[in-house]
């Protein structure tokens, strides 16, 4: 399969703290890839590097064969990388619809003159943007709440709106940072179905961080396990579940039975 994202020997250190050391992985086009690991393993740090929020101390990131490490987020989103955050970052005082429409920012061609004189291009673009945003909200099942302020939605719904916003950017690679944190099991099932649909129907590549092992095992095709800033294992969910290092570092000895 064609390689979409390649991370090569990424190191990140904050002063004396080595947050990531020599992390390498590669995500293929069209797959669901998971990054797991205990708290403080450096998962979010790696996401920050890939999405441009953090320049790596050394190492390279390739996206579609192009070297992109150190580029700012506003250059990465247009070429196809979009992310969600561990603590949801919707604009609280903005409606759900407008939150999703923010994802359209990079593709709207309107300029200041268009806005001032309400030009035809402006009106058409705005209409199209509203329509598209509604369609995405329908896709994630949040169309009922389009006029609600984001702050008024329950946590699980906010998460879906945030995911809808990344879809709206048209990015091919979606990075989800712990998408089902704080959700109950019913919500988790719904979310994993949604992620599968995003992957299968919208043909987006999904790269996610997750704590919930059951969630990851069902969803992802490949998994990399991070512990204390290093890759300790890589493989299919079945291989990961059997890996003694992973069991020790992450699942904890003795919990293996419970996971199966």
């Amino acid at each position: 399969m064609e390689e979409l994202l390649k991370v090569e020997n990424i190191c990140v250190s904050f002063g004396g703290l080595q947050a990531l050391s020599n992390v390498s992985l590669s995500v293929d086009k069209g797959e669901i890839y998971a990054l797991i690991g205990p708290n403080g393993a450096g998962k979010t740090t790696l996401f920050n590097v890939i999405s441009g929020f953090l320049a790596p101390t050394s190492g390279k990131v390739f996206y579609n064969g192009r070297e992109v490490q150190g580029l700012p987020p506003h250059k990465l989103t247009p070429i196809g990388i979009s992310r969600t955050f561990q603590n949801i970052r919707l604009l609280p005082n903005v409606t759900v619809l407008d939150n999703v429409r923010l994802g359209h920012h990079i593709r709207l061609k309107q300029n200041m003159a268009d806005a001032l004189f309400n030009s035809r291009r402006f009106r058409e673009e705005e209409e199209k943007s509203i329509e598209d945003a509604r369609e995405i909200l329908r896709f994630v099942g949040m169309e009922k709440y389009e006029n609600e302020f984001a702050r008024n939605l329950p946590y699980g719904h906010q998460r879906k709106v945030e995911i809808a916003r990344t879809i709206a950017t048209n990015a091919e690679l979606l990075l989800f940072d712990e998408p089902c944190a704080g959700m109950n099991s019913a919500e988790k099932v719904g979310l994993s179905e949604l992620i599968l649909e995003i992957n299968k129907e919208l043909k987006r590549t999904v790269f996610l961080i997750e704590h919930d092992m059951r969630f990851v095992m069902k969803l992802s095709e490949e998994i990399t396990v991070l512990n204390q800033g290093q890759c300790i294992a890589y493989g299919t969910p079945e291989e990961i579940q059997e890996d003694p290092d992973v069991i020790e570092a992450y699942l904890g000895v003795g919990r293996k039975g419970g996971q199966e």
């Binding site: 999405s51 929020f53 506003h74 990465l76 247009p78 979009s82 970052r89 903005v94 709207l108 402006f122």
Partner: peptide, 24 residues
Amino acid sequence: ASKIGRALSAIKNDEVAAKSLGIN
């Protein structure tokens, strides 16, 4: 009511989110 205004208010509300959506 335009892209510009939405970007500005996104910056006010949450700079990190604004950045992640490709807003310079």
